[in-house]
Design a protein around this nucleic acid. Structure first.
Length: 477
RNA sequence: GGCGCAUUCGUCUAGGGGUCCAGGACGCCGCCCUCUCACGGCGGUAACACGGGUUCGAAUCCCGUAUGCGCUACCA
């Protein structure tokens, strides 16, 4: 068994393409088959080498591996021409000298009458009447399509039937000598012995053409599986209008590849048992293309975000750090951030959000700016400054400086002063993080360490006694 | 226009004649946990497109209708 993912390098890796790649990979792994990567760059107008490289990178980032390739179709142009000539010589294809202008005029005229346009077949008749086939005059090569039903079985859609009389004699070789998609895809699938073709739904109507070609080449037809499209919230093909469309954009948003892989795996397929989280290797044990849904699915970024959060909180700091580093300012290192990441990894849904949570652990003590609203709420009362001074003294004496000891010290102080622990905790949180919300305050102190904790607390006390603790409010006397 | 495909909570989905006055997940709402915010726990909100059949019985099978999407290129 051999499957392939065959993107055309006309842009970034689209999430729809990414899912197609994932489904191909999973099916191959499930059945012990091979995965081939092929770059379909026969459209010289739109294909770009840097797009091909980008797609390869995105696939690697996502964790989609391939066993063979990448193979570039642009390296095989001679092969497509060779096979097309074969079809011309055995009468299954012919040269067509009609110009684009002539065809466009015919099409416009037919459509103006409200009829369906079909190629007139003029050059086909000429060829069949024995007119000479000059290969020096500009021409394309067209494949003959005969009337009658064309049938095939689709793993997802079931039995399909198309009427041959409705399909034009399609172009195989363009007038510039380059092959069209239809030719190159079939020649390659034959040469590379592809057994299963899983691709987007948008190719379903192209499949009868490909069947015609497989038969013309007298080759065994692969099994087809047409995957339903991924839609945007507008229920149209996912586009920029409704959000990010490329794997790369999701990476830049702070999505971890494992989460995107998992999310895409579940778009149109499910592992049963109401399971949401499933790693690739487990999916590969049970995945089958024939279990894929027929209906298109809307891409829901909210759920992706949730899933990303699930992955972040389950990953270790060491696993997160490489993905996180690009979102952190300046140069940081894992060793100094490990405990801070552990403490904050469940507190954001994206790497970006985690990075923001990490800010208090990265900046200088003097750079902690108090959130205005939180300051207004927690930095008040005449006795605050002396109370925080007492806390300072208590913490200074605390040894070891761990979660248990610091908590005991703070609560003991609160009790002796007859105030709730919260009256100490909230101002302390402001002092240490500048924020109204943070992880458990004792964890924060420990991660920050005794020195930084005391320095930041001292800064708060100084500020309170200078009377500038509460912006916009009357300073305590 | 023609051809093709699809249609279960807002979204992803389970369901393949009775166990479904439809289950899970995201989102949303409420409660709990609690030093705050997350996390977590508990509960709630919300769907079988419509109309005909077939059948003792249909979300499940058949036929229409509607809607949506895709294709209809010397793009893939």
């Amino acid at each position: 068994m051999k499957l392939r993912f065959a993107p055309s390098p006309t842009g970034f890796l689209h999430v729809g393409g990414a899912r197609t790649a994932i489904f191909n990979l999973l099916h191959a792994r499930r059945h012990g088959g091979t995965m081939l990567l092929r770059i379909e760059d026969t459209d010289v107008e739109r294909s770009r080498q840097h797009h091909a490289e980008q797609i390869l990178q995105s696939l690697q980032w996502l964790g989609v591996e391939w066993d063979e390739g990448p193979i570039y179709q642009s390296d095989r142009l001679h092969r497509y021409r060779e096979r097309a000539e074969e079809l011309v010589s055995n009468g299954k294809a012919y040269r067509c000298y009609c110009t684009v202008e002539e065809l466009d005029a015919e099409r416009t005229a037919t459509e103006a009458k409200g009829d369906m346009y079909r190629y007139s077949g003029r050059c086909r008749r000429r060829a069949e009447d024995g007119h000479p086939q000059h290969d020096d005059a500009p021409h394309v090569i067209r494949c003959k399509v005969h009337p009658g039903p064309i049938e095939f079985h689709d793993l997802i859609r079931g039995d399909m039937q198309f009427a041959g009389e409705l399909i034009d004699d399609f172009v195989l070789i363009r007038s510039d000598g380059n092959p069209t998609y239809h030719l190159s895809v079939v020649v390659d699938d034959v040469d590379m012995e592809i057994t299963h073709v899983a691709r987007g739904d948008d190719h379903l109507s192209n499949t009868p053409k490909h069947i015609v070609l497989f038969r013309a080449f007298d080759a065994r037809e692969p099994v087809f599986a047409h995957l339903p499209l991924i839609l945007g919230s507008d229920r149209k093909r996912l586009s920029k209008r409704t959000g990010a469309t490329s794997a790369e954009e999701y990476r830049d948003l702070g999505i971890v590849p494992e989460a995107l892989f998992n999310f895409l795996t579940l778009l149109g397929w499910n592992p049963g048992g109401d399971r949401e989280m499933i790693p690739p290797d487990e999916a590969a044990e049970i995945f089958d293309l024939s279990d894929v849904n027929k209906a298109p699915a809307v891409f829901d970024p909210e759920k992706l975000l949730w899933m990303n959060g699930q992955y972040l909180m389950r990953m270790t700091a060491d696993e997160i750090y490489p993905h996180l580093a690009p979102f952190l300012p300046g140069d940081t290192n894992l060793a100094e951030l490990r405990s801070a990441i552990e403490l904050n990894k469940a507190r954001g849904r994206t790497l970006k959000e985690i990075a923001a949570q990490l800010e208090p652990y990265l900046v200088d003590d003097g750079a902690i700016h108090y959130d205005e609203e939180a300051a207004k709420k927690h930095l008040k009362g005449d006795d605050l400054a002396p109370r925080m001074s007492d806390l300072y003294d208590a913490l200074e004496k605390t040894e070891p400086f761990d979660v248990t000891a610091t908590e005991e010290a703070l609560r003991a102080l609160a009790e002796s002063k007859g105030v709730s622990a919260a009256k100490l905790i909230h101002p302390l949180r402001l002092a240490l993080t500048g924020r109204g919300a943070s992880p458990g305050i004792f964890d924060v102190m420990v991660v920050l360490g005794k020195d930084r904790t005391l320095t930041r607390l001292r800064l708060l006390i100084d500020r309170l006694s200078r009377g500038s603790g509460t912006p916009g409010e009357t300073p305590p006397t």
